[in-house]
Amino acid sequence: MLKINNLHVRVGEKTILNGIDLAVKPGEVHAIMGPNGSGKSTLSHVLAGREGYEVIEGEVLYQGNNLLDLSPEARAHAGLFLGFQYPVEIPGVNNMYFLKAAINARRVVQGRNELDAFDFIQMAKTKAKLVGLDESLLQRSVNEGFSGGEKKRNEIFQMAVLEPILAILDETDSGLDIDALRIVAEGVNALRDPERSVILVTHYQRLLDYIVPDYVHVLSEGRIVRSGGRELALTLEEKGYGWLKEKSPHIAPAGPGA
């Protein structure tokens, strides 16, 4: 499904990702943890095709194709979804209108007919219920004036509507209250499917109680410094990130280079 090989990424003069290797198979859930500023969002953005990042080395294969060659919208059409750490407000654009345009853009590319307003609304309402999104938010402008938690929930709602093949959720759990966290996790679990993979970026092991990952990776200074099963998250919660540095400061074979 997704294969990242030796990915190096630079923003301006600053190298942020220093050789990421990661393989995600269909149906798997991978959690990525790591200290602030370690490059988690950068990785998410690069995968989604945001401009301003320069890939200086490495490659990313998605469903066997070179992902980095595609425009952001083409990646979305191919089933890649990014839940934003900071969802963006679009004043004056109705949430439902926005999502309908999104879903139909993809359907057109797939050669399917567009959903009409009626079918779309039915579907959207069902999905809103699934992720516990207040229906009144559907008629508001995209994220405008939404509370932090509502924005995150809206991301999960969009994911549920768009039914991605690979969902990358960048700290979708931060800002959610405990009940919301559970509801959102249930929403994600409901979408778990042998054909659908999820990359969860999170700081909190608590989320992983609800969405049980197959793998946990620790990203530090632009590299995956440790990978393990679910128990790795528990160890991290207990010990923090410091012990990783002490025990294995140089996992990568060579120095990062300038």
């Binding site: 989604a48 095709g49 945001r50 401009e51 301003g52 425009s71 952001p72 919208e73 990646r75 979305a76 059409h77 979804f81 990014l82 934003f84 969802p87 963006v88 407000e89 679009i90 004043p91 004056g92 654009v93 209108y97 926005f98 999502l99 345009a101 999104a102 879903i103 853009a105 993809r106 590319v109 402008s141 969009q158 768009l162």
Partner: peptide
């Protein structure tokens, strides 16, 4: 914003459509 455009495009909406959507919203 580049961030608004990227957000739209990430959801599968082309850049031109995104611009017109944002402007019309405005």
């Amino acid at each position: 914003g580049e961030d608004q455009l990227f957000y739209c495009r990430q959801r599968g909406i082309s850049e031109e459509d995104a611009v017109s959507m944002i402007v019309n919203g405005f």
